[in-house]
Structure formats: C-alpha cells, structure tokens
C-alpha cells in the first residue's frame, strides 16, 4: 500500500541571479514498510525532496499525497495544500525526523529530548517518560537518559535523535544524511537500527545520503541535479 507519494514535484528557489531549480518533475511512491534511500551528490536535491515529502516545505509544482489525500501542492495548477498548522499536526502524528547534525536541544537531557514529540501530542508526563525511557533502551542508551547532548558522543547523540524520531510511533521516518557526521562504527550502528525498525516494527524509512554504499536492504532512488535517475 502506498503511504506517501510525490507526483510531478518541482521546487524552485528564487536567487538574485535567477531561479535555481532544485527539483524537477520528481515522482516517487513509497510503500508502507519500505526502506528507501535517496542518493545523489551534494546539491542534487536530496534534502529538498525529503523536506517536501516530510511536509516541511511545499513544492513549487506537483503535489504530495499522504495515505490517499493531497496534503501539499504547488501553486501552479491550484494550491490544494492543507494549512500550516494541519501540516504540523500531520508531522507530529505520522512522521519522525532525523537530521545530519542531530539537532537536539542542548540544554535538555536525552530523556527530555526524546519525550518532546509525545508532550507536543498531549501525552501525560508519566507516559512520555516511560515511553522515552523505553526508546532510549532500544537504541542502547538507557543508562544515558539524564545526560545532556554535550555529555554524549556523536554516535550517542544520533541515537538519541533516532529515539526522538520514533518515540511517538510514526508511520514514516525521514533521515537526512544521518551518518554523515559519524565514524564508521557509529554509522554502522545507526544503519543497523534503521534496518531493525523496518524489519521488526514495519516502519517506513526514507534516508537521504550521498554514499551509494549506504543504500542497503532497500530501494535506492538516485537524484542528479534535481531529477530522478533511477
């Protein structure tokens, strides 16, 4: 079953020297439980595609369909996007995000970082604590729950970010260059965790990376200058 689809999506960025076309006529359907890796060189449009699929940015052209409903579309041909607050609610309910440089709140403990999505969703303090502890255990950081990001290694920080992306049980997780700042061992650990969540939890994962060898155990979508190559 297709959970998310990009239909003829294009994205332009106006610049002083003219319009930069980051994506052009990209169509992509992602099935539930699928592990998709978007690869391509720097500037090929991977992050922009993830941002559009993750409902963080609207396309200039085309549309994004989530579980059969158009949720975001370009102004060309009539804007059928839902409101920004509805998009935020969709992200909170169904999506998780992992970023290249972790993006944890530096002043909050690992536990407090992980429980954020649950708190935004209105979970009680006790529930969010129990769930956050459970997910920290799953990523192997149960004993680091009360440490702040500055007291964790980069690999540990990315695993905290992974727990934060999964704690509210989203249908789909987007990871933008999640291993780019990690050493080989930590990068391997993160890939293993993604594979485990897809296999054991039926999670849908979309990973953007410029490493071709990172596309393992799933479908690879290659981008080149904003266009899908394969």
């Amino acid at each position: 079953m297709t959970i998310l689809a990009a239909e003829h999506v294009g994205r332009d960025y106006p610049q002083p020297r003219g319009v930069v076309r980051a994506l052009d006529n990209v169509s992509l359907a992602i099935e539930a439980g699928e592990h998709v890796t978007v690869t391509g060189a720097s500037g090929s449009g991977k992050s922009t595609l993830l941002a559009i699929l993750g409902l963080m940015e609207r396309p200039t052209r085309g549309r994004v369909v989530f579980r059969g409903d158009v949720v975001s579309s370009g102004r060309e041909g009539g804007d059928r996007s839902v409101s920004a607050s509805r998009l935020a609610a969709l992200r909170l309910e169904h999506m998780g995000f992992v970023f290249q440089d972790f993006r944890l709140l530096r002043h909050a403990s690992a536990l407090d970082n992980v429980r954020l999505p649950l708190e935004f969703a209105g979970a009680s303090r006790a529930t969010s604590r129990v769930e956050a502890e459970r997910w920290l255990d799953r990523v192997g950081l149960g004993d680091r729950a009360h440490r702040k990001p500055g007291e964790l290694s980069r690999g540990e920080m990315q695993r905290v970010a992974l727990a934060r992306a999964l704690v509210h049980r989203p249908a789909i997780v987007f990871a933008d260059e999640p291993t780019a700042n990690l050493d080989r061992a930590n990068a391997e650990r993160v890939h293993e965790l993604f594979a485990e969540f897809v296999r054991d939890d039926g999670l849908t994962v979309v990973v953007a990376t410029h490493h071709h060898d990172a596309a393992r155990g799933g479908r690879e979508v290659r981008l080149r200058e904003g266009v899908v190559e394969s």
């Binding site: 993750g54 935020a88 992200r91 999506m95 995000f97 993006r103 530096r106 954020l116 935004f120």
Partner: peptide
C-alpha cells in the same frame, strides 16, 4: 533559530 526549526519540524504548534 535552528532549535525552534527542529521543534517546528517535529510538530510543535505555533502557540506552544
């Protein structure tokens, strides 16, 4: 800015 962007990305509402 980045921190607030993350919170926005993971679904935090504008009033919150």
């Amino acid at each position: 800015r980045g921190e607030m962007g993350v919170l926005r990305a993971i679904g935090c509402s504008t009033p919150r």
